[in-house]
């Protein structure tokens, strides 16, 4: 049995009547990473929100989502809430916007950990500090007492990863975790995502339109276009022998860009790795 099995997921916007996601089925194997690739508006984020059941009231989703043998869409909201964060962790695209701007980031982190573990302040601080150090955020206590606008997007992204470390979820959903970052921060975040997977031995859904990152992380890939899955397969197959014209174009464009990029960089990556 797969860790996550999505069957006939169909999402519509009741306000406009438009279909956001059309009858899509896919699965995530235990311990593997599934990448969802596609341009913006193709339904990638909608898929993530559907799994978490975090849509607005007027967005309607049908279909079955089986997670560790349980049907998520049939769960009462209370139980679903217990799963969010603890078993299904999400990492958002904009670190800058993911934390309440009027509080220091420690507040939101503390609330989350208290909710799932019932820890005291000292326990939260100790556990979170360890996790933050492991994603190379030094001075964790000081950082937790800072407001979101005082940190960079990449740092906040790593704070989210650190929180995921502590929560030890079975499935991590990373929605475009690197899109809003500059190259160096991107690199650091990707390194930490890899480390996270290795340590947790958990599964991951990675949403991205950056095929370079997908290549490094993904085992399986689904390609989406206009709310539909147009191609699926293991990463190797997709990158070497894509069937769908759209995927071929995507891979081709990425390869051309990468070649150009590599030449420009000329091995500059070593600098970043210290």
């Amino acid at each position: 049995m797969h860790l996550l099995e999505v069957q006939h997921l169909h999402v519509t916007d009741r306000h406009t009547g438009s279909v956001l996601l059309r009858d899509s089925s896919f699965h995530v194997k235990q311990g593997s990473c599934l990448a969802i690739v596609g341009e913006s508006g193709s339904g990638k984020s909608v898929t993530c929100k559907s799994i978490m059941r975090l849509h607005k009231a007027w967005i309607r989703q049908t279909g079955e989502i089986w997670f560790k043998g349980e049907e998520l869409s049939a769960l009462p909201e209370r139980q679903m809430r217990k799963k969010r964060g603890k078993q299904l962790a999400m990492i958002l695209q904009h670190g800058m916007r993911a934390f309440d701007p009027t509080c220091v980031i420690g507040v939101q982190i503390g609330e989350t950990l208290k909710e799932h573990y019932g820890w005291s302040r000292a326990e939260i601080e100790a556990n979170m500090s360890l996790a933050m150090m492991s994603v190379r955020l030094n001075n964790p206590v000081e950082l937790m007492n800072k407001y979101p606008h005082q940190l960079s997007g990449g740092m906040l992204q790593r704070v989210m990863i650190a929180l995921a470390f502590v929560l030890e979820p079975d499935l991590i959903i990373a929605d475009e975790p690197t899109t809003a970052l500059d190259t160096i921060a991107q690199f650091e975040v990707v390194e930490q995502l890899i480390a996270l997977r290795e340590r947790m031995n958990g599964a991951m859904i990675l949403v991205s339109h950056d095929l370079g990152i997908v290549r490094r992380l993904a085992d399986d890939i689904i390609v989406m276009k206009d709310g539909e899955i147009v191609e699926r397969g293991s990463a190797n197959v997709i990158f070497s022998a894509a069937q769908h014209a759209y995927t071929q174009r995507l891979v081709e464009a990425n390869r051309a860009l990468n070649g150009h990029f590599e030449r420009l960089k000329g091995g500059g990556l070593g600098l970043v790795e210290h």
Binding site: L54, R81, K83, L92, H94, R97, F99, Q108, E111, T112
Partner: peptide, 16 residues
């Protein structure tokens, strides 16, 4: 806002 989405995705109760 994203922070509401993230807070919910972390499993915070609606009250918080």
């Amino acid at each position: 806002a994203d922070y509401v989405l993230y807070a919910r995705a972390c499993g915070l109760p609606e009250k918080k």
